[in-house]
Design a protein around this nucleic acid. Structure first.
Lengths: 189, 189
DNA sequence: AGTTGTGAATTTATTCACAGCA
DNA sequence: TGCTGTGAATAAATTCACAACT
């Protein structure tokens, strides 16, 4: 979140930002920000604040976003296609360099300039050294596809289906359940 | 999350579930579940567990998901269209009953059986008594569109653009930043 | 015998407040 | 003077452990 904010604020005129200014922007209290950063090092200058460019580099390095990351998209349906064409991944250095689907009508076609491959061949990810997958398949096939991804050496999965995925402890899953997030709104209203 | 899990587990043979069984399913510890429920009431039976159907009803009522909810989609691009056709909202009682876009080529066309309207006419949401909006517009127009939505009486926004939205205190925003979630994976790997 | 509901204990997260430095 | 970095203080969340109940 800090990374996203700083990349945005980098465009402004200023070179330095204080924890209070950043705090106002991300709606978090200043000591929280300083404490968060302090877990990883001392990136600021007393009396001045944080050099924005330098801080971006530090966070990029902490998050391992300092080298380009290849990701595979599994599921070239409406949502998968939308994500594939979504420009937002670039800011984090992600490139979707492989797309898989099980639909024979889609295999061989292209999204952008990436050709859709048969999901039965996900094991090729091992050789291609792709470690990240965006899973945009129906909930009922999510778990079985996940098993194949893990088999293919995937260690990070962004799961867009509304279900929990069982994976070995060395695989990290982040689940985004869009309907569930919407489901929380009426309570607050 | 409990709601999602219980709706799924409802399909199984059993009528009752203990906090330990539910805990295993959602990967949360049993006392956490009991404590969470206890903030809202005593829904279980000692020695037996929770009546699944009854618990679903209780949670539905807490979350205000017990009556159908109308939502408006703002932005009929690839992502918006995918969301609109996404079946997952139904489980929570949501219906996307209005779609808006600013592109004249899209206005008047249909997604599913809902006609796309001009985003300049979002103020009609007031009369239609729609209080929820799914915002799937580019980041640079998100804030200005939000202001119009608030003006039109929207009190809950599911924001899919990677930016913070400024709203009055009586409006609740939930932001899903898909790229940011993916951005967290390399750190864990 | 088995499970809930909940005060107490523990752990974790947040905030304060200020020494130390530019 | 102004802001960071951080130990101490406070607040919040989680977990324990067990009485109460079916």
């Amino acid at each position: 979140m800090y990374f996203r904010a700083l990349v945005f604020l980098e465009k402004n005129q200023k070179d330095y930002i204080s924890s209070s200014e950043l705090a106002e922007f991300v709606h978090i209290k200043p000591p929280q920000i300083r404490k968060d950063f302090s877990y990883f090092g001392a990136f600021g200058t007393k009396g001045i604040g944080y050099d924005i460019k330098n801080l971006i580099n530090e966070i990029q390095s902490i998050l391992k976003l300092d080298s380009p990351q290849k990701a595979a998209l599994i599921g070239a349906g409406k949502l998968g296609t939308a994500l594939c064409l979504f420009p937002g991944f670039k800011a984090y250095g992600f490139e979707i360099s492989a797309i898989f689907d099980k639909d024979p009508d889609k295999i061989g076609k292209k999204i952008g300039n990436t050709t859709i491959e048969d999901v039965a061949t996900v094991d090729s990810l091992t050789q291609r050294n792709i470690k990240l997958a965006i899973l945009a398949v129906p909930a009922n096939t999510a778990q079985s596809t996940t098993a194949e991804l893990v088999q293919a050496g995937i260690t990070g999965i962004l799961n867009l289906s509304p279900c929990y995925l069982d994976v070995p402890p060395d695989v990290k899953v982040v689940t985004i359940d869009i309907a569930m997030e919407l489901g929380a709104l009426p309570y607050y209203i």
